[in-house]
């Protein structure tokens, strides 16, 4: 299956199928990570991260895949791993070409989202469900109230704010502790 077909799958919203195809590239990424001293588990995490970044880029309209999926995922993975290892020297950073800089920035950016994700996972099951329903399923508060058995849509709305606030607080503390490090 060509890269074009995979792009089609993404466009049609068949993300999981597209990911399935992309997993064929995983063994080669695993080899890369292991050659740099990572474990199999590390390789899995890195590849997942690369796929998330790819997905995010594909969703922004102005992204153009300039090379093959493999080349792209390879370089993203490389940066993700270097970032985890904090192994990039200033010298290396200065020598990066424009495209690499772009990728590297994306990797750094993604780390923020990771924190937000972790914050989201920390807020409790009910809050997670509520926010998921609102942001992903774009459900109205009226429907949410029905699904989650709130007495009224107002209460649902109120709850949503509270959950959001909670998540953001957690996020802020996490961010602070990360920055301190």
């Amino acid at each position: 299956m060509s890269d074009q077909d995979i792009l089609e799958l993404f466009k049609n919203g068949q993300r999981d199928k597209a990911f399935k195809k992309l997993y064929r590239l995983y063994p080669r990424i695993e080899k890369l990570i292991r050659s740099k001293g990572g474990t199999k588990a590390d390789a899995k995490d890195v590849f997942q991260e690369a796929l998330i970044i790819l997905n995010r880029n594909l969703e922004t309209s102005n992204f153009k895949l300039t090379s093959s999926f493999y080349t792209y995922l390879y370089s993203v993975s490389r940066f993700v791993w270097s970032d985890i290892q904090k192994s990039l020297t200033k010298q290396q950073l200065q020598n990066l070409n424009a495209q690499d800089v772009q990728i590297f920035q994306e990797v750094i950016e993604e780390k923020k989202y990771q924190l937000a994700e972790h914050a989201f996972l920390d807020i409790g099951k009910r809050c997670q469900q509520l926010l998921q329903l609102f942001y992903h399923k774009a459900m109205s508060f009226k429907d949410i109230a029905k699904v989650m058995q709130f007495k009224s849509d107002k209460i649902a709305k109120n709850q949503k704010y509270k959950c959001l606030q909670k998540a953001k607080d957690i996020y802020q503390t996490k961010l602070k502790s990360v920055n301190l490090n």
Partner: peptide, 28 residues
Amino acid sequence: EHMVFINGLQRVQVKADIQKGQRSYYTE
């Protein structure tokens, strides 16, 4: 800040899809 949060939330969804893809890849 809200954008970061929204993106973080997206990750959860994307990850779920990735896992799904991975599983079906390995099964196959």
